[in-house]
Design a protein around this nucleic acid. Structure first.
Lengths: 346, 346
DNA sequence: CAAGAAATGAGGTACGCCCCTCAAAAATCG
DNA sequence: CGATTTTTGAGGGGCGTACCTCATTTCTTG
């Protein structure tokens, strides 16, 4: 049997009340007595039953999950995963609200974070690291509210944890795939991005370039074309590049835009075959992989990410440690043949 | 405030005892009443407080984890993951013992399973599906002990759940990789297996062949060479095949034997470059991927597998449902650039 | 319609811990 | 040494749920 407070009291030769005072760091106990109780605790190997403690405290954890109010399928997918995880988490008295902010408005985000109630047990945040955000996160930490960064790290704040994958490494994995799929012989790769102001895109590109340069020097990686989220712009820049780079055999998509790309390619050059590699598993990329319009994606598991974020926040709120191995997200490669069953199927 | 059983009783107009009967699926309640209670539950959005429930039950779960006593690195890795997961699980009053059986001796396994105490809350088992094993598993189910199959399914027993990946699908993923890495132009693929009596190997080969045939008809997949776990045999069959199949550019390793293969290739043909694809992430394959002696592996996450097995057993013991999405293992592709950090590093 | 069976209610105890109150014991101090 | 302060003990109520017993009500069925 696991030892309980009663066993400690017996072992230490004190009353339950005293054990309780020591355990909860309440005043009015002599140092000698504290020592005796602690000795008993370590001797018996007592570990406080966190569940029972929380029950007694009738403590509940109010978490805030903060996401950009973007219509990108990746964010939508993540939001869904977080909603599911939050739903599941209610079973462990964790109540997580999903809050959204206008994607471009960091001041709105800062206000949102500043307005979080003091009883917030933790914040899971997906946001780019701008000075405004940095300050807002620091303010949270000053208020003793744990913060975990999701998807995109906030290394220069003192966030408690980052749950997600390293974008540079993800870009490297994409490069590795691209290089191997293209095979030997010279070729060119077109790189498409929404906007190169996004940190993730920059990092992915960096990793991609590094691998291509060192591992596949016979492949020329062209400059990033920015579509700014517009299908028309994409069609235009693609038309240009297809003329100027007739040897292009690969396309690397840094961010979203898979659907627009598929359509553009279908009209522009229906019978030219490209190796297309992108990021994130969404309904679009899922369908594209299945149909063979996309060869591979590099991604992270949003369900895992969501559960991990909440677990880590829970652990921080309890001031407990967490399982490093379980909380480390993997860089996943998804191709047609290892498409996970379920997520976006009818 | 979160609704409690008391709220449900009030809402449904029944007593606490009845709510309890419904919640815990105890007999003696009319269907109408059950319906009323369930309506109240969904109306109030009640979610059972697991922590309180477990506390009240003060039940501890004694699980048995049964693995072959094989020296294969995959089994060793899995055993380690299971040990870690069991360690973690003590926090949720789950005590899991690791039991091993001689890999070839299914009767020993049957005896082991039959000797499990009646208070066993669940068994996680990795074993091939032979008639003896099938009967032993059925006997467990008759004793009302939940069983989850790990790694290799036991479809013809009434095991409660399978945690692992579909070997046919894993073989397909390997085939997809092989075909794409080899590129266009005719080539041949050498397939190596320990023994084609192992179900996993057969299934992988089946998936591999299917993909190669339909997706990469220009690639000829040679007959499986069996090494029977002996490095000498491997060297011999490899020497033969390298003579008879000079166009072989790919090697598919169905099971273990990565180390022996590396050594054989290094001595037999140090400057011939093959596309090598295998299964499972172990210290050997990790090192081989890193060194470029191996191009990709198809695997499952052993940590996830271990935790999933225990979680599912817990859920079964509680007669609770579990999160399908969380318990579905993914077919992972690991290459040099997405090697997970940590597991086998110094 | 009565007897028997089934369904329901009432109430208690327990799980491990938190938190509060009040009295008793021990230590400290002038 | 007595008075004051500090430390300790004893005990109770509660958190949300499980599980048990016994009485009472309601439904079946012959």
């Amino acid at each position: 049997m696991r030892p309980t407070v009663i066993d400690i009291a017996r072992e230490a030769g004190v009353s339950l009340a005293t054990v309780d005072r020591v355990l909860n760091a309440r005043p009015g106990v002599r140092a000698v007595t504290i020592g005796a109780v602690n000795d008993a605790i370590s001797k018996l190997g007592y570990v406080r039953d966190q569940a029972a403690a929380n029950l007694a405290r009738s403590r509940s954890y109010r978490m805030a999950i903060v996401l950009p109010d973007s219509d990108s399928q990746f964010v939508q997918t993540l939001a869904q995963a977080l909603t599911d995880a939050a739903q599941q988490a209610t079973a462990t008295r964790t109540e997580a609200r999903l809050l959204r902010f206008p994607p471009e408005d960091m001041h709105a985000l800062a206000t949102l974070l500043a307005d979080l109630p003091d009883d917030t047990a933790g914040v899971a945040l997906m946001a780019p690291e701008t000075p405004v955000v940095r300050d807002a996160v620091r303010a949270l930490r000053t208020r003793d509210i744990p913060v975990v960064a999701m998807v995109s790290d906030l290394p220069n704040t003192d966030r408690d944890h980052f749950v997600g994958i390293d974008s540079v490494a993800a870009g490297r994995a994409a490069g590795d795939l691209m290089g191997r799929f293209l095979g030997p012989g010279p070729s060119q790769v077109i790189v498409l991005g929404q906007s190169m102001l996004l940190r993730d895109s920059i990092d992915r590109r960096r990793g991609f370039d590094a691998v291509m340069q060192s591992g596949f020097p016979h492949v020329e990686v062209l400059q990033t074309l920015e579509s700014h989220g517009s299908a028309a712009t994409l069609a235009q820049v693609m038309a240009e590049i297809l003329r100027s780079a007739p040897h292009a055999r690969g396309i690397y998509l840094l961010g979203s835009g898979h659907r627009a790309l598929s359509e553009t390619l279908a009209t522009l050059c229906p019978d030219r075959r490209f190796v297309v590699i992108g990021h994130e598993l969404t309904p679009h990329t899922h369908a594209a992989l299945k149909a063979g319009r996309l060869d591979a994606i590099v991604t992270q598991n949003p369900g895992h990410l969501a559960r991990s974020a909440l677990r880590v926040l829970r652990a921080r709120a309890d001031r407990a440690a967490f399982d490093e191995g379980q909380e480390r997200l993997r860089i996943e490669i998804v191709m047609r043949e290892n498409l996970p069953a379920g997520p976006f199927e009818p």
